[in-house]
């Protein structure tokens, strides 16, 4: 089954252009692994890149550069250059997580530094060495109601296992939901299976209920 909720076109275009930050690109590329329809959009946008490359005003290249490159290639062909990197698959990929996400997780998701965020909700940061928004995994026990909250910046969520439902729809594996400061929602994890999501956050979550506001310090991702 493929995804029903997709990232918006402006993000796909920036990914194709190479101007999207690495944290957001992790989520987009992971979605692309599961979504042939969005891969199609990205490949169209890359064709735009190819056309724009043909269109640029050429800049003079050094004299003899071609010979330098050809000499390098002859050298390279004698050495070992075309060894493909082995796929970095975690030893315990119980959630069948796609690449490139698995490249950012050492070993199993179980060995990540999980933090308690609230009743039945845990969060673990990944790729914390990168600049830009924060990326992490969220685990929500089946049937859990996450406290009603708003957002102080953009947030992208992609479901990897299980699912959840909020006022905007039902989200299952591969689906992406974008939240900005206009969205206040209360996601409820689907019954049955633990819901695991990849989240990319710019701001902090802003709980709207009284009790939720009391736990806000814990909700800080």
């Amino acid at each position: 089954m493929t995804a029903h909720h997709h990232p918006s076109d402006d993000i796909l275009l920036s990914y194709a252009a190479g101007s999207l930050d690495e944290p957001t690109s992790i989520l987009i590329a992971t979605h692309l692994a599961l979504c042939p329809a969005c891969r199609e959009q990205v490949s169209k946008a890359e064709s735009v890149g190819g056309e724009l490359l043909n269109d640029v005003k050429p800049v003079a290249i050094q004299d003899g550069a071609l010979d330098v490159v050809l000499a390098r290639l002859d050298e390279g062909e004698r050495g070992q250059i075309n060894v493909p990197a082995p796929a970095a698959v975690p030893h315990d990929n119980d959630l069948n997580l796609p690449r490139p996400l698995t490249d950012y997780i050492d070993g199993s998701t179980k060995s990540l530094p999980w933090r308690w965020l609230g009743p039945s909700v845990h969060y673990a940061p990944i790729a914390s060495h990168t600049k830009g928004p924060k990326v992490g995994l969220l685990r929500i026990a089946p049937g859990t109601r996450v406290p009603m909250h708003g957002h102080s910046g953009n947030e992208l969520t992609m479901v990897l296992a299980g699912g959840y439902t909020d006022g905007t729809g039902n989200y299952t594996r591969g689906d992406v939901e974008a939240a900005d400061d206009g969205l206040v929602h209360q996601p409820i994890a689907d019954a049955g299976e633990e819901c695991v999501c990849l989240v990319v956050t710019e701001g902090v979550l802003q709980p709207t209920g009284l009790i939720a506001r009391l736990v806000q310090p814990f909700l800080r991702i």
Binding site: E22, A29, T30, A33, L34, R99, P100, K131
Partner: peptide
């Protein structure tokens, strides 16, 4: 930075 990209050989990849 790295450029995260999908891998068509990945078992989780949907063709």
């Amino acid at each position: 930075e790295k450029r995260p990209a999908f891998d068509p050989e990945d078992p989780a990849f949907i063709p």
